[in-house]
Amino acid sequence: MNASVPVKTPIFSREGDVWVPDAYAAGPFRGLYGGAVGGLVGAAMEEHARKEGWGVPLSSSVTILRPAPLSPLSTEISVLQAGRRNAVAECVLRDPATDKLIAKGQAIFVQPAPHTSAPLTPEPQGTHWTVDPETLPQWQNGRRPEHVNFLHILDMRDELDAKGRPTIRWSRMMRPLMPFPSLLGTLFTAADNASAFWLSASGAWPTDFGFPNVDVSVHVSRAPQGEWIGVLPDALLHQTGMGMSEGVLYDQAGVLGRTCQTNLIVPRD
């Protein structure tokens, strides 16, 4: 990371009715990084939910309709449901300069209601429940283009098995995404890397093909704990030019949830 970049400066700042991305919101190719787009949409819904007291965001999905420009963007929030235990919000992301629709997302928020006699899911033991990601080696197959982009502000680490093969890929942001805390922002910025993590683990990275995702979804069973999110990736990619990637999500407390994406397979320019 460039030491001249203020660590606590958010990637997106609010100016009036728009969100202004800085240079580090860029993707490796054209437009904003997919995780930054998903994080912005999710965080906007989460900010509204926090004001309404809706509880914890447990599910969210964002569809990316076109590349987001590195310029001011507007968000529009709609409330689809606001019940006693759960609420559903929708967010539309637009380019105000052209009024083009960039992305659309939905999120579900749930109010905790403790039940001490309810059945619990036992969590199997494993090294990822005790590992400190900060002590792990840097992601060796990370592809960080020379131009300033979102990958430069992600601290990514490899958890290795007994034979030295990568298993869970951990990541955290070295700068905040938004000028306020966002669980969904944290989740989306990690989950969006499931394809790249799987490709590098399979030995197919770097490649002459790109695997852009047109959507990304996250489902978790509780609020994540800490700044590190782990992804145990998998994928189904085909010579038809179609595929999907997915991953089990972790934090340092254990299994957190799942992520899934729809991928297009395209030759690089």
Rank of each mutant, 00 (worst) to 15 (best):
254 G>P: 01
137 P>A: 13
17 D>G: 04
57 P>R: 10
37 V>M: 07
15 E>P: 01
24 Y>C: 11
266 V>G: 07
114 P>Q: 14
47 E>M: 03
76 E>A: 10
107 A>I: 14
165 R>V: 02
214 V>A: 14
20 V>R: 10
182 S>L: 12
115 H>I: 10
159 E>K: 04
46 E>H: 11
21 P>S: 00
245 S>D: 08
40 L>R: 06
182 S>Y: 14
158 D>R: 05
174 M>C: 12
123 E>T: 13
192 D>M: 09
197 F>V: 03
110 V>N: 06
102 I>A: 09
52 E>I: 00
169 R>P: 00
126 G>D: 10
90 E>R: 02
135 T>E: 12
40 L>P: 04
118 A>G: 07
35 G>E: 06
191 A>D: 11
210 G>N: 11
60 S>T: 15
109 F>M: 10
125 Q>C: 13
33 Y>N: 09
192 D>E: 03
186 T>N: 06
111 Q>D: 03
53 G>N: 15
47 E>T: 07
132 D>A: 05
23 A>T: 12
231 V>Y: 12
52 E>V: 00
246 E>Y: 04
195 S>F: 12
148 V>D: 15
131 V>M: 03
22 D>G: 08
20 V>H: 15
35 G>C: 15
122 P>T: 05
243 G>K: 04
168 I>T: 08
198 W>E: 12
182 S>Q: 06
155 D>K: 12
123 E>F: 05
249 L>Q: 14
85 R>H: 10
268 R>A: 05
91 C>M: 13
112 P>K: 04
143 R>C: 11
253 A>G: 11
83 G>N: 12
178 M>F: 06
169 R>N: 06
196 A>I: 13
248 V>K: 10
220 V>T: 11
27 G>Y: 14
153 I>M: 15
151 L>A: 14
88 V>R: 08
